[in-house]
Amino acid sequence: MSPTPQQRRAARHRLGTGQGDAPPARRGPSGGRKKPITVDAIITAAFGIVEAEGYEALTMRRVATALETGPSSLYAHVVNKEDLDELLIGRLCAGIELPEPDPERWREQIVGVCAQLRDQYLRYPGISRAAFAAASSNLDTLRVGEGMLAILLAGGIEPQAAAWAIDSLALYVNAYTLELSVADTRLGRTGGDDWVVSREELLRRFAALPDSFPQSKRYAAELTAGTLHDRFDFTLGLMIDGLPRPR
Rank of each mutant, 00 (worst) to 15 (best):
A225G: 10
E158A: 14
A165M: 02
L153M: 11
E97R: 08
L117C: 07
T190H: 08
D184I: 11
Q109H: 04
E100C: 12
M1H: 10
S72I: 09
R118V: 00
E97D: 13
N174A: 14
P214G: 01
R105V: 00
A161Q: 07
A22N: 10
G155I: 03
L87G: 03
I37L: 10
Q7S: 13
P244S: 13
A165Y: 00
E104V: 10
L117Q: 07
A57M: 04
Y176S: 02
A183Q: 13
R247W: 12
K35H: 04
G20V: 09
G16R: 03
A45P: 08
R199K: 11
L88R: 07
A64Y: 02
P23K: 04
L142M: 15
P246V: 09
R118T: 11
R105M: 06
A135M: 04
R189V: 11
D40G: 09
R26I: 02
S168W: 12
I166N: 11
F234E: 14
W195G: 13
E56T: 14
T65C: 03
K34I: 05
F206W: 08
V197H: 08
P99G: 10
A154C: 06
V79G: 07
A130F: 02
P23Y: 02
E51R: 11
F206N: 01
R61E: 11
V196S: 09
R9P: 04
R33C: 05
V113I: 09
S212H: 10
S181E: 10
E104H: 11
S181G: 14
I127M: 14
P246Q: 15
L180Y: 05
T17F: 07
P29I: 01
P101W: 06
A163F: 15
S137Y: 00
Y124N: 02
T69C: 13
A11E: 05
P246I: 12
K35L: 15
F232K: 00
G18S: 09
P23L: 04
G16I: 12
T177Y: 01
A154W: 03
K34M: 04
L243I: 05
